[in-house]
């Protein structure tokens, strides 16, 4: 079922339809939030909040066939609000980090270290490049889909993706 049909059904309170929309966009929403906030726990909260706001404002979605792009705008806004709230609460800079606080076995510790390295490298990129590289390389969205959902020209998406990958490889190169 396409987005427009699911949105129409969800507008009349169809839980299954809304559930399908959540399934379709939950990881993308998380990744966009992560690219703004930098902390997985907060990114998840922002993504969750964005879905609930989207449901409440579903009647304002003027182009239901482009629900994904509309949702990502909400995710970015909620994430930016969260970052601003955090910034007011604490004066320290919010790092882009995916660190885990739970003790782990040796292999998990290595993975955790690698995860932190990647997160740190991503933190060096501009926000738009983080979003694009995560949505393309992790969520599997095509250039055209990213362009449509983030409201960017397709050529710009390709260019950002190219530079993002190049920067990440350089930042994660052994010995650097």
């Amino acid at each position: 079922m396409d987005d427009a049909t699911l949105v129409a059904l969800a507008r009349s309170g169809d839980g299954d339809a809304f559930g399908q929309l959540v399934t379709r966009y939950r990881r993308a929403a998380f990744l966009v939030a992560l690219s703004v906030i930098g902390r997985p726990e907060d990114a998840e909260d922002a993504a969750q909040e964005a879905f609930l706001v989207a449901l409440e404002r579903l009647d304002d979605c003027r182009r239901p066939s482009r629900f994904g792009g509309w949702l990502m705008t909400i995710v970015r806004n909620r994430s930016n609000n969260l970052v601003r709230r955090e910034a007011l609460r604490a004066t320290e800079q919010i790092p882009f980090s995916a660190r885990s606080s739970t003790p782990t076995p040796e292999k998990e510790a290595q993975l955790s270290e690698l995860r932190d390295e990647i997160a740190r490298a991503l933190g060096e990129l501009p926000e738009v490049q983080r979003q694009i590289v995560l949505l393309h390389d992790l969520e599997g969205w095509k250039h055209r889909e990213i362009a449509q959902r983030l409201g960017l020209p397709a050529g710009t998406v390709r260019s950002h993706l190219h530079y993002a990958r190049k920067s990440l490889r350089k930042l994660l190169k052994p010995g650097e």
Binding site: G13, G15, F18, V22, R26, Q48, L52, L55
Partner: peptide, 21 residues
Amino acid sequence: RFQARVMALAGPELARRRATR
């Protein structure tokens, strides 16, 4: 689990929409 949390929190709004459609 994420999905279940979102759906649980969305329950009242979905019910409101069903009642007023």
